[in-house]
Design a protein around this nucleic acid. Structure first.
Lengths: 335, 335
DNA sequence: CTGTTAGCGCCTTCAT
DNA sequence: ATGAAGGCGCTAACAG
């Protein structure tokens, strides 16, 4: 059995209050007493029991994080930010992976409440409104981070997808392309970031008096891309020289498809993506893409929660994260 | 303020003992009392406070997981297994990411002890002996999962790298190759899985009377591979037609290097890897590689810990996980 | 500066 | 079958 505050008190020949005072540095303690306590702590290898401490202080220093799949790159990148900033403020992360099951997520939230977490962060690719309601009514601070859905009310951290999309399209245009198609995900597009990307694409094109061609996939799997092969072929036959894709996965599977058909990227066709995670550094050609600051998204989310917990006054500004376009090798300069 | 067991007792007009009995199903309670308690719980939306519960039962149902980088594919894949199996047994995961700093890891272990975790799992790419000692002397069950180091005493879960390496080399030989080189990581090779891989390669080659050529990198970054470009070129000039690589990253960067030099894979040169994570499905050509069961590695590790916690008698067998060779497109059949 | 006391919310004997 | 009482390890008044 680990030693307790009592053992330390006994050994140092003081009361447990005094021990508590030195470990918390809460009230003045005479140098002599402090010395003895410290010594006893050392000898007994005493470590305060956080569970007991939480019970009385009502602070668990725990943030619950519900994710849909810890194995996904998106989730793990966001988690980096959450974990590191949480740590800076002495908060630990309890991690729960739901694999996208909404019912499981409901159970998780209950579990987390019982564990007395002080905040909850949800990192997912799907939407679970029921979970949001439950978190809302729980009155504990929470943040919702979603890979696709970008909903005004839920917003925690946002990115100006429309603007950066326009910039990316400008970049493609500057490289001499004029027949540029976009590919985005159709599902729930009115509530996802995809809408903003397509809007950005279309407005940039219109600003240059160019006509648009917007293709849509069902998702980001290889099959989803192959399913619109006809439309891709069609675009190319009609002179499309560049594809502005709303996600790195789409871009990469598109390139795979093109290469398999003997079409070279970027020599014959240029392609851009959105995301900028590891794969885009390894894959050849190195993808020209928008680097989404996943780490910062996580960091800002937990920071916001901690602010609420600590009742920091921070004016509730909407945080808009800057993004960066990585100009690499998948866009060719036409002459 | 959330309602407590007292509130429930008052509302149901019973003692807190009775409430405790129904929520834990520990002792018989009259149907009538039970009904009233359940009703009160429902109305008050009562959820037992796990912190208080842990304090008295001395069970936190928490497993601490120290990782070097939550953002790494390796870590997140292993975590999937840890999390899911932990969940099955009602254990939650506290996640700490050290970014490889040994001192930080020491602090983490202390932190975890204070949080009263019942077990600790370390998932890393580096070795922290001090941490292992500390965990060992803590007397709480722990498991050490390492991406590279494969040390007899520390073993938690193991893989027969030598055997599968031989099989992979056999596969390459069956495809008509005879001049095959290996590439592995030199660092600490006597204590890493790399040794077994090279051994497997060499023994397969010798069994076929073929001569070996073993190259070594400093690590798995792109630069590490480029640093041995001369040796790679040299091997090719000397007739090498296939490279058996000890890690997917090495294989992929090697292919990048070769392709950049106008050498086609697998048409001119065949390449195999080790790992089988997501990237190898997306990358072209699809890599022929050994699929390491990361999920199972994590699952077995936590299962082992839970066995100790629950004092299950399970004979302390050494678990050897089966692996699978993914025969895909990066090895060409020579005629 | 220090010790005593009263809980935090819950489980668990021990009586009844 | 049920309630009263004690205590898990710790913090926070309250006296002194």
């Amino acid at each position: 059995m680990a030693s307790t505050i009592k053992d330390v008190a006994k050994m140092a020949d003081v009361s447990i209050s005094t021990v508590s005072r030195v470990i918390n540095d809460s009230k003045p303690v005479s140098p002599e007493a402090r010395r003895r306590v410290l010594h006893a702590i050392e000898v007994l290898d005493y470590r305060p029991n956080e569970v007991a401490r939480s019970l009385v202080t009502k602070k668990s220093n725990l943030i619950g994080v519900i994710v849909d799949d810890i194995g996904s790159t998106y989730v793990s990148y966001v988690l980096r930010g959450v974990e590191e900033i949480g740590r800076m403020y002495n908060y630990d992360i309890i991690l729960l992976s739901s694999y996208g099951d909404p019912e499981v997520e409901m159970k998780f939230s209950k579990l987390l409440f019982q564990k007395q977490v002080e905040g909850v962060i949800v990192i997912s690719s799907t939407l679970n409104q029921k979970l949001m309601y439950k978190l809302e009514e729980s009155k504990i601070p929470y943040a919702n981070i979603n890979r696709f859905y970008d909903i005004e009310e839920d917003l925690t951290v946002r990115i100006n997808y429309e603007k950066v999309s326009s910039e990316m399209v400008e970049h493609i245009i500057e490289n001499g392309h004029s027949n540029i198609a976009s590919i985005a995900i159709r599902k729930d597009i009115d509530r996802t970031e995809e809408k903003y990307k397509v809007d950005g694409y279309e407005s940039a094109m219109k600003n240059h008096g160019l006509s648009t061609r917007s293709l849509y996939t069902a998702g980001i799997t290889e099959q989803d891309v192959l399913d619109i092969a006809n439309e891709i072929d069609d675009a190319i036959e009609n002179g499309t020289t560049a594809f502005f894709c709303s996600q790195d996965e789409i871009a990469v599977y598109l390139i795979n498809y093109l290469v398999d058909r003997g079409i070279k990227v970027p020599d014959d066709i240029s392609v851009t993506g959105f995301g900028g995670t590891g794969i885009t550094n390894i894959y050849r050609p190195k993808l020209t893409t928008v680097k989404i600051p996943y780490y910062d998204i996580g960091a800002v989310a937990i920071r916001k929660i901690l602010k609420v917990i600590n009742k920091e006054e921070g004016l509730e500004e909407r945080i808009l994260l800057p993004v960066q376009i990585l100009k690499r090798d998948s866009v060719k300069k036409l002459n």
